[in-house]
Design a protein around this nucleic acid. Structure first.
Lengths: 210, 210
DNA sequence: GTTTTTATTTATCATCTGATAAACTAATTC
DNA sequence: GAATTAGTTTATCAGATGATAAATAAAAAC
């Protein structure tokens, strides 16, 4: 963009650091973490050594990119809303997935997430733990109630129940993979897809009981 | 493994090429395509220049890895079996996904697939086209029949119908992503997961009509 | 307006990495 | 068994790449 426009030369350290960080998120999301510092600098319209004024190593910049991409993505409020039985489970799940997708099914996030997973960065594992604990297990509990099955304190949520919900969760996540990683043409009406996926899961799970 | 065992020195060109290719599949599946030729050679127990006796460039080796990973993975017979209405749709889908997963939900395949998709290799796009055409569209057609909806020649399969099936398909694929990319603990009883996902999709889709 | 400070650039290093050429050696040929 | 062929290794190159130090220039201080 502003590769040669000397518009914003000599920024304050805070602004420059922020600009580099934002540029690095976009850059590494596109190229992966083997992307080169010179190319990143070029894209930012600065020289490569300037990166090292703000980040001691390439690795340290990548770590900051992780932080930037991951913080404040899971709103604890959502878990609470998921278990609020004053609303229908269908409604709750649709609301949740619309919020959740808006926060995480973004180009940079999805791509950095997949790159980091392939590189076995610890953040992926940590995030998976959070998802299972704060989202999928609550959904399993609500689904038990919805289907008239025993409560959690009678028998804990099994791996197969979790994996069953993972299929819906993963199916919706996969929509974002198709869009941002495969770059396929996908339907833009994600709300409709969520609504259908949720209805299908709820009705299908109930039907499977009988 | 046999990094220093001079057991299989001086192989025939065919054997050596095959050995390098197999090693390269494993290596690039693990490290991604920015993995280095020296490390690959070390893992193979040969010297790095020997690679260039069999493959003129690193890129050409990677191309061969793609070919190796992708050929003969989709059996055309499966598409035929999917539309054989002498069996229940549930049975057909379960059989298909068990065959399909056995062929493609393998560690090397899944990881190379995702690396190549992130790198925007054309193979991914090509493969997606095949899946939509030979698998998902047939399933949509069968699902129409199952739900008592109009035939394809009345109204063509819409993007939203395709995306709906993509959720199930992606959900099952995501199981393999969790296993081989996230390396999470997942249920090994994949047949059970397939059976549940298929039942849920079928019953859910039917219920959504009423 | 001169001096001081500091953000940024230019020049450069050391190592890595894909690739090549020559040397070596284990088979094969005669 | 000597000569030839061919698979493999050693030595090495050229460009790429992360990182550093010195030079430059824009802003701040006085």
């Amino acid at each position: 963009m502003n590769a040669k426009t000397n518009t914003n030369r000599r920024l304050s350290p805070e602004d420059r650091e922020q600009q580099i960080l934002e540029g690095a998120v976009k850059f590494f999301a596109e190229k992966g973490f083997s992307g080169q510092t010179r190319e990143l600098a070029l894209q930012l319209g600065i020289t490569q050594p300037l990166l090292y004024r703000y980040f001691p190593t390439k690795r340290s910049l990548i770590e900051r990119v992780f932080e930037e991409a991951y913080i404040n993505k899971l709103d604890p409020e959502w878990s609470v809303a998921l278990t609020d039985r004053s609303q229908s489970l269908h409604k709750r799940l649709c609301t949740f997935y619309c919020n959740y997708s808006e926060a995480t099914y973004r180009n940079e996030w999805i791509r950095i997430y997949m790159f980091s997973a392939l590189m076995e960065e610890p953040l992926n594992r940590h995030y998976i733990g959070l998802v299972e604990e704060q989202i999928l297990t609550p959904i399993c509990i609500e689904l038990r109630d919805y289907c008239g099955l025993p409560k959690v304190d009678i028998s804990p949520i099994s791996q197969i129940e979790l994996d069953h919900i993972w299929v819906m969760h993963g199916g919706l996540f996969y929509h974002a993979i198709r869009k941002h990683i495969y770059r396929s043409r996908v339907s833009n009406d994600f709300e409709e897809i969520v609504s259908r996926a949720v209805s299908t899961m709820l009705e299908g799970s109930k039907a499977a009981q009988s």
